[in-house]
Amino acid sequence: MFRDRQDAAERLAGALAPYAGRHPLILAIPRGAVPMARILAERLGGEFDVVLVRKIGSPFNPEVAVGAVDEAGQVYVAPHAAAHGADAAYLDEEARVQRRLMAARRARYTPARAPIEPAGRTVIVVDDGLATGATMIAALRAVKARHPKELLGAVPVAAAESLAAVRAMGFTCVCLHTPEDFGSVGAYYRAFPQVDDDEVVALLSG
């Protein structure tokens, strides 16, 4: 479906063209979406930064998200969390672990400045795809608490039920492709390399 993240970002920029001229703030969910956010900011005439949220994985399969937590400690618990063995004690402990990791990442990513303030602005939260939607929901909730003027999510590809879950929370989310048999995000990119912390730091300081 997409050659790589750059191709996906260029196509998303076309879909988001109505937001050009509003000086939007593009917030990437690290790490994969950071290169995309930079392209979107350039195409739409805005700024970009990161919104730090972390998936909480299932106790039996860490790749399956049962929730997510933001920097402030607000936890989103997916409806299927209990069915995957994630009780309140597990979620609390995992949230603490992930918050420590986010604090370390924030210190590394933007050591010389505070996060760009979203209050009163048009804000677009971007990721390279939605599998469960948990991290996008957590990110949108975190940004909403900072009182943006306008807020939406944007992804190249999503599982239909995950996109529906985001929208059911009252959020707008622009999505280019919702395949019937989703699989995984990486399956829709011909090239889907890992984005490491060094690349994120370079993009944010560039």
Rank of each mutant, 00 (worst) to 15 (best):
A119I: 11
R121P: 01
Y188L: 09
P179Q: 06
V200C: 05
L203I: 08
A103M: 09
D87Y: 08
A139P: 10
C175L: 04
F60S: 09
V166C: 06
V143K: 00
A28C: 08
L40H: 04
L203S: 05
C173Q: 04
G21Y: 02
P79G: 07
V174T: 15
R113C: 10
R100F: 07
R190L: 11
T178E: 05
Y188G: 03
V64L: 15
R108P: 07
K144N: 12
N61C: 06
K149N: 09
F48E: 01
R99V: 15
L151W: 02
G85D: 06
H80L: 07
V166W: 05
A103C: 06
D181L: 10
Q6P: 05
S58G: 15
V126R: 01
A164P: 07
D127A: 15
L152F: 01
F2E: 03
G67D: 04
V77D: 04
E93K: 14
A138L: 08
F48G: 00
A13M: 09
G129C: 05
A65Q: 03
P62W: 08
A89H: 06
S184W: 11
G67T: 12
S184D: 14
A114G: 08
G120S: 09
E42M: 08
I124C: 03
T178K: 02
A104E: 12
V34Y: 01
V174Q: 15
F60R: 13
T172I: 07
A81N: 02
G14E: 15
V77M: 04
V77G: 00
R106L: 10
E42C: 12
A20R: 02
E71K: 04
A164V: 11
V174F: 06
R108G: 13
L12R: 05
A95H: 13
P148D: 11
A142R: 03
V126C: 03
V51P: 01
P30I: 10
L91Q: 10
A103E: 12
F60C: 10
H177D: 11
D4V: 14
V50N: 00
H84F: 12
G129K: 01
T172G: 05
A17Q: 13
T178Y: 01
V166R: 04
V66M: 10
D70S: 06
A134E: 03
A145R: 14
A82M: 13
A68H: 00
P111I: 08
Q194A: 14
M36V: 09
P179R: 14
V97H: 13
A68E: 02
F48A: 02
V75A: 00
V155S: 11
G120P: 13
L151T: 06
G170I: 08
V195K: 07
D197P: 03
A145S: 14
L91V: 09
S205D: 14
P156I: 15
A142P: 05
A112S: 14
E180D: 14
G46W: 09
V77C: 04
A139Y: 10
F60M: 12
R100G: 09
L203C: 06
V157Q: 07
D181T: 08
E10S: 10
L151K: 02
D196P: 07
R167I: 12
D127H: 14
V174P: 03
V201M: 12
A13K: 04
M169G: 10
H80R: 11
A41L: 03
C173H: 06
P118Y: 15
I29T: 00
A78G: 03
D92S: 15
L16D: 02
I124N: 01
I116Q: 07
V123W: 00
R108A: 15
V155G: 06
Y188F: 14
G14T: 14
Y76H: 12
